[in-house]
Design a protein around this nucleic acid. Sequence first.
DNA 1: ACCTTTTACGCGAACGTTCGTCCACCGCCG
DNA 2: CGGCGGTGGACGAACGTTCGCGTAAAAGGT
Lengths: 363, 363
Amino acid sequence: MARRYVSVKEIAAKAGVSFQTASKVLNGGNVRVSAETAARIMAVAEKLGYRPNTVARSLVQQTTSTIGLITGDLTDGALSQFAVSAEQTARRHEHAVLIGNLAEHDEGGTAVLQMLIDRRVDGIIAAAPQLEGDTAVADLLRRYVPAVSLHHVPGGGVPVVGSNHRDGARLATRHLLALGHTRIGTVTGPFRRHVVRSRLHGYEDALREAGIEPGEDLAVEAAWTPGTAAAATRLLLQRDPEMTAIFVHSDTMAIGVLSALAAARRSVPGDVAVVSCDDMPFAEYLTPSLTSLRVPFAQTGERAVELLLNSIGGQDPPAEPVLLPVQLIVRGSCGSPAPGRPRTRPAHAPAPAPPVTSRTEDS
Amino acid sequence: MARRYVSVKEIAAKAGVSFQTASKVLNGGNVRVSAETAARIMAVAEKLGYRPNTVARSLVQQTTSTIGLITGDLTDGALSQFAVSAEQTARRHEHAVLIGNLAEHDEGGTAVLQMLIDRRVDGIIAAAPQLEGDTAVADLLRRYVPAVSLHHVPGGGVPVVGSNHRDGARLATRHLLALGHTRIGTVTGPFRRHVVRSRLHGYEDALREAGIEPGEDLAVEAAWTPGTAAAATRLLLQRDPEMTAIFVHSDTMAIGVLSALAAARRSVPGDVAVVSCDDMPFAEYLTPSLTSLRVPFAQTGERAVELLLNSIGGQDPPAEPVLLPVQLIVRGSCGSPAPGRPRTRPAHAPAPAPPVTSRTEDS
DNA sequence: ACCTTTTACGCGAACGTTCGTCCACCGCCG
DNA sequence: CGGCGGTGGACGAACGTTCGCGTAAAAGGT
């Protein structure tokens, strides 16, 4: 540990050339050096374990080959899938990722962002829904470096990538309607979130299509946690004991919904059908297995980074939000006639997913 | 966007002083300048929105105030809790976090590590269990900068922080024994992992204490996923249909275990009791609610970073692994007489957790 | 009134690179 | 034999800081 790094000057000295020449051989592109000297330099570098100092390089080249990723709670499965995929594609493009995670109700959105900017990242990916209303953050996002956001940025000017949540919710709700349900409740995330409102719209769209006027009191807000979702479910049950289906906004919340239904002695899907969002890896293994909207988090991460890198490269970003399609994965919890699989599934059967896909407007 | 950064030279020019003086006023510590000039400089800096260029600073100070975090799958709830907490405490100490996440069976352990080192991070936290056997990685970890690891590092020389998994497993198994179970199976992570072996030891310790010789075939390996855990459970059921309890190594796998038990028409905890590990936020809301060993991931992240920063500061790190205690949170799935709570829990009741705590040897 | 101390700032150097220009030498041709 | 193009490499400058020392002018002491 604590070994000194070896610089190009030392290499040069040992190889008997100027350090600039050594630099060119080692890192630069088109050099004009004899094959022998080049080889000699390379040999010395190899022997000494030379590694270019990227911070010095960054200084002169005015680019760090680093992108900043500011996330909401990384503990959330959805966001972490996104982050992992983003990091991976960044790395594939020779970029490192500097991370800034916002704690619970961390007020430090600007602070974290400023820290990334101070470190001269080449671009920023914002994936912190709790910042979607923050204008100070929006200003920073616009001001210094290219950025791509997962959430709506007040004032615009920042390209957005996401999924078509409205269509997804419509799909999910339609599925429940098709199964004959008419009293469909929904356990949502916080109303102030754009995603949540999009999904509410989709849900209402579908109901209206079916000639049902969505009841105000059948949509209950929760805070993305199983606990709050369980509470919301109890409230829903109380408001309309005849309710036969629930559309819930995340798989994690679905766990709470199932828990509350079990506590209320309602069987799923017998008494109440459940459709969820996210399609986390565990969704298939809940009891009953969860019907869920598959949101392409990984793909979103990839797209976001690609967009950002293009933007950094000078290409101008799409003016319209890039919306990836969402897919309804039908399983046991909605009591669909569809799956028809026995309750005991073969070892790893990844559910032959009837892939009712969506695409178009609105994130 | 793409606005030029303003340097200290520009500030100095506009304030009519040398840039070094401006630098001292803006960033340096003990300056000797008149109050007026200082104020003037500050004013100009403020107006122009000066932000020091940390990469230049890093170059001269030979420190980046950045730590590298190399993780296994961040998608895993446990690891992400750790990462979030690590990032947060790093930030609290004015350090940024450069992240390198290893994909599935990413062979690029050394590549990622090298990338962090090339970027001259001040220290590294290794939280990628899949690297625990990698000697090349171990060498890198020892060689350049201080490091702290979550997993065992071949050859030593790197301080380790973790939890006392052996004790934890002992605790869990004892609890099952105390409830009268004698045929206790276990669904584990991959045997090659150190954690897994520690837990197996704890499990066996407890059985032997009770005069039971642990049967080889009652320990089945899975791959941390619900699917593989479900398969493991089926195997267990087949090997010993009389088995009445299962100790499983993660909450995510527990979902698979519950699923397989339900498919086999065994009730939990009636026919089979289940105790798990991790105590993820959702554990409380599974049906039945999951008894689980609470592993202090967040605290581990905090300790790891503190250790690392101390190490960077020149303090020498503990020679022995730092092991944090683990706690058994008793809930419904083990059929303990303990909880005695009605199945319908009050809104947010965070389970009054009988806190059977552990501490001592072995990670 | 002269020397010393302090105050307030300037200045050169360094960190480890990249990039473009400059230059010495060699061989070659007319 | 003088000029010429090409080859191989040196060299200065710059990126934006920090750090220590140097030094004028003002202030204080006797």
